[in-house]
Simulated scan of single mutants.
Amino acid sequence: MSQNLSEPRNLKILVVDTHELILDVTINVVQKQYPEGEISIAQNAQSAFNQVETFQPQLLIMELSLPDSCGQYPQIETGIQCLRTLMKKYPQLNLVVFSSYTKALVRIQTADIYAHEGGFAVIDKSLPRQEMLNSLDVVLKGGTIYPGRKTREVNYNWLELLNLAFQEGLTDQVIAQRMNVAQRTVRHYWSQLQAFLGIDPQQSREEGKNIRIQTLIYAREAGFID
């Protein structure tokens, strides 16, 4: 169950976004919807954690592309890890992902989202204002809005594989060592991932395409990797 809000004036809202202009617009819209509410802001993941501890919001609205701390570059993976931590540590906190990178939520198990005790919503920043506000009301009542829910879950070995290959630039041999599996298992992961993404290796070879680069492009489009 979500946190009980007995009266509107008790509502505390934390808005987490690295862009000041977006923060200003979001705060203005939310304040008009909940004029008795108290709003605080955070502009990076560490600040968000601190604010949740001290401010104790009932509703948290967050961007996914966040820096870990002040002065660092925003990363979608940082936001994903921040969201995972919030869901685990504060299971009753009402959460709204308000972002242009909602595809990246494929990195979180659908079951974990629906198991979250508080309200949970995914809102793309391109959606109309009223649709966003309607979603906030649903979340505050403990509801879940996840339009991007997956019909097939992602194997999280694939995400580790992508990170090691494209973020760290490792070969399959070293990836196998890091993942503590046989090298043939790594090749199997590649085959599974490419099939999931709709890549036909034989056709790609016939068309003269680099399969690894094609996998990277498709994986980014699907939100698997930054």
Rank of each mutant, 00 (worst) to 15 (best):
V154C: 04
E7Q: 10
G37Y: 00
R107I: 07
P128E: 14
D200N: 15
T18A: 14
M1H: 12
E206M: 07
P147S: 09
S40F: 08
L86T: 07
L59K: 01
R212K: 12
E131L: 13
K32M: 13
L64M: 07
S2Y: 00
R152L: 13
R107L: 06
N50W: 07
H116D: 13
G148I: 03
M132P: 05
G142I: 01
I39H: 00
A121R: 00
H188C: 09
F120A: 00
Q58N: 10
L159E: 01
L60E: 04
E20R: 13
I113P: 07
P91I: 03
N4Q: 14
D124P: 06
L164G: 08
R152D: 10
G71C: 10
S2Q: 03
E63R: 05
T185N: 09
R129W: 04
T144Q: 08
Y73S: 14
P74C: 09
Y156R: 15
L127A: 15
E7N: 12
V106T: 14
G198P: 03
D172H: 10
A219N: 05
D226M: 03
N4G: 01
L193W: 06
S191I: 13
E131I: 09
T78A: 08
N155Y: 06
F120R: 00
V106W: 09
I213R: 15
Y114N: 10
H188E: 12
K141R: 15
A111H: 13
V138D: 11
G79E: 09
T144W: 02
G142F: 02
A165L: 10
P128D: 11
F120M: 01
T151K: 11
V52D: 00
Y90T: 07
I113C: 04
N10T: 06
V96W: 00
S204K: 08
G143C: 06
F49R: 13
P57L: 00
Q109S: 10
S126F: 08
M87L: 04
S69V: 06
L93M: 06
L93I: 09
T144R: 01
Q72E: 15
Q202W: 11
I145D: 03
V29G: 01
A42Y: 02
W190G: 01
R107C: 10
G119Y: 01
R152E: 12
V30M: 03
N180G: 09
C70I: 14
L136D: 04
H116S: 08
Q173C: 07
N180R: 11
I217L: 07
L127Q: 14
A195M: 08
V30D: 04
K141T: 14
W158M: 02
F98V: 04
L21W: 09
W190I: 05
D112I: 12
D200K: 02
K125M: 13
I108G: 00
S69D: 13
Q173M: 11
T144E: 00
L193I: 02
N94Q: 09
K89Q: 15
R84N: 15
L162W: 03
S100T: 14
E206Q: 12
L23T: 12
P201G: 11
A42T: 05
V122N: 00
D17W: 02
Q3P: 02
Q203I: 10
L140G: 00
Q72P: 06
